[in-house]
C-alpha cells in the first residue's frame, strides 16, 4: 500500500450523492495494485460498491466480516470476474484480459477445492508448469519446503487435513514466484504454530518486494498479519490505515457488557455512582451496562461488587466481536 496517512474512516454513503472520486483526499491512484471506483453487482445485489485503493509492495490485510465483499474484490483483482463499474489494474495491466500479467499473480482461493487425486508434489508442479516456470521440479520442491510439506509422500491431497490442504494451496501460489500474491482467508484450518509460520512467511514475501494481500474476518489475526489494513463491510471500504490506530479508534467506542449479579438494581446504581457506566438497564438477574472504558470497568467491577456484598455471576462483553466493530465503523461513533 502507498504510504498510508493516519487511519481514515469513511462516512456511510449518501444515497443521493455522486460517486466518489477515488479515496477522499488521496493522490491519484498508483501502485502495483489499483482499484479505482470499482463496483460489482450480481443482479440486484451489490457485492462491492465504489471501492478505491492502491497497494504497493509489502503485506496488506483486508479485514471484513463474512459476506463483506472480500472474495469478490479478490476475484476482480485476479481477473476472475470483471468489475461492473470502475477499473482494476494489476502491475499496470488488466488481469482479466492480459495473459502475461496472470503469470505474475497468484491466488490462494478461499474455497477448499483442490485436484484431490493429485499428490501435493503433483499439484504444486502442475501450478509451476501451467505458469511456465522453467525449473518446475526445483520450484516445486522449494515451494513445498516453504510450507513444511516436504515429507508428505505419495498421499493424494484429497486425504489431507484442512490445514495441510491450505498449505498446499499456498505452495502452489508461491511456486511461480509471483509479484502479486492474493490470499483469501489463508489461515483457516491452520493450528497456531502453522499460523505463526505462515504469517512470518507472508512478511518475508512482503519484505522481499512482493505485493501480498491477505484477507481475514478475524480481528486479532489481522493484527499479526500486517499493520496496513483495509476494512471492508457491506461491499464498501469503510476504513483504511495502520492497524494500531484503527484498533484505538475502535476501542474509543462505548462497550456494552452484561453483568450477572445477585442484586442487579443495587449494582447498577453503584456503577453509575462510581462513573463506571454511562448507561444501565436492569433486568431480573443482570444489568446491561454501557461503559466507555472497558478495561477500567473490568478491573473495578468485581472489587465494587465485593464491597457491596453482591455476588457476580458473569461479566460478559456483548459487542467485542468483529461484527460490532464493523457496525461501529460503518455507523460512526455512537
Amino acid at each position: 500500500m502507498n504510504e498510508l496517512p493516519p487511519p481514515t474512516v469513511f462516512a456511510p454513503p449518501d444515497p443521493g450523492a455522486a460517486p466518489s472520486q477515488g479515496v477522499p483526499g488521496a493522490a491519484p491512484l498508483s501502485g502495483k495494485l489499483v482499484v479505482d471506483q470499482v463496483s460489482k453487482y450480481f443482479g440486484s445485489v451489490v457485492a462491492v460498491s465504489d471501492v478505491s485503493f492502491a497497494i504497493d509492495a509489502g503485506v496488506t490485510a483486508l479485514l471484513g466480516p463474512n459476506g463483506a465483499g472480500k472474495s469478490t474484490l479478490f476475484r476482480m483483482l485476479c481477473g476472475l470476474t470483471p468489475p461492473s463499474r470502475g477499473r482494476v489494474s494489476v502491475l499496470g495491466a488488466d488481469p482479466r484480459h492480459d495473459r502475461e500479467v496472470r503469470g505474475r499473480i497468484s491466488l490462494v482461493p478461499q474455497q477448499d477445492a483442490l485436484f484431490d487425486h493429485l499428490t501435493a508434489n503433483e499439484f504444486v508442479e502442475l501450478a509451476a508448469r501451467s505458469s511456465g516456470v522453467v525449473d518446475a521440479a526445483g520450484a516445486t520442491a522449494s515451494a513445498l519446503e516453504h510450507v513444511d510439506l516436504t515429507d508428505v509422500g505419495p498421499k493424494p491431497v484429497g486425504q489431507f487435513s484442512k490445514g495441510m490442504r491450505q498449505r498446499v494451496k499456498v505452495a502452489a501460489a508461491l511456486v511461480n514466484d509471483p509479484e502479486v500474491l492474493i490470499l483469501d482467508e489463508p489461515l483457516t484450518g491452520l493450528d497456531p504454530v502453522q499460523r505463526r509460520h505462515m504469517i512470518a512467511l507472508f512478511h518475508r514475501l512482503g519484505d522481499d518486494g512482493r505485493c501480498v494481500v491477505v484477507s481475514s474476518h478475524v480481528l486479532d489475526e489481522v493484527a499479526r498479519i500486517g499493520s496496513r489494513v483495509l476494512v471492508i463491510a457491506q461491499g464498501r471500504l469503510i476504513a483504511r490505515g495502520d492497524y494500531r490506530d484503527l484498533r484505538e479508534l475502535m476501542d474509543d467506542r462505548a462497550h456494552r457488557i452484561r453483568v450477572g449479579a445477585s442484586e442487579p438494581r443495587r449494582l447498577a446504581a453503584a456503577l453509575v455512582e462510581h462513573g463506571l457506566a454511562t448507561g444501565v438497564m436492569v433486568e431480573s438477574d443482570h444489568v446491561m451496562v454501557d461503559a466507555l472504558d472497558a478495561d477500567a470497568f473490568g478491573r473495578r467491577v468485581a472489587p465494587l461488587a465485593v464491597g457491596l456484598g453482591i455476588r457476580l455471576t458473569e461479566v460478559f462483553p456483548l459487542d467485542d466481536d468483529l461484527e460490532s466493530v464493523f457496525r461501529y465503523l460503518v455507523e460512526g461513533r455512537s
Partner: peptide, 11 residues
C-alpha cells in the same frame, strides 16, 4: 471450483 487453477494461469 477447481477451474480457477487452470484459468488463472498464463495459458
Amino acid at each position: 471450483k477447481t477451474l480457477v487453477y487452470l484459468w488463472l494461469r498464463p495459458m
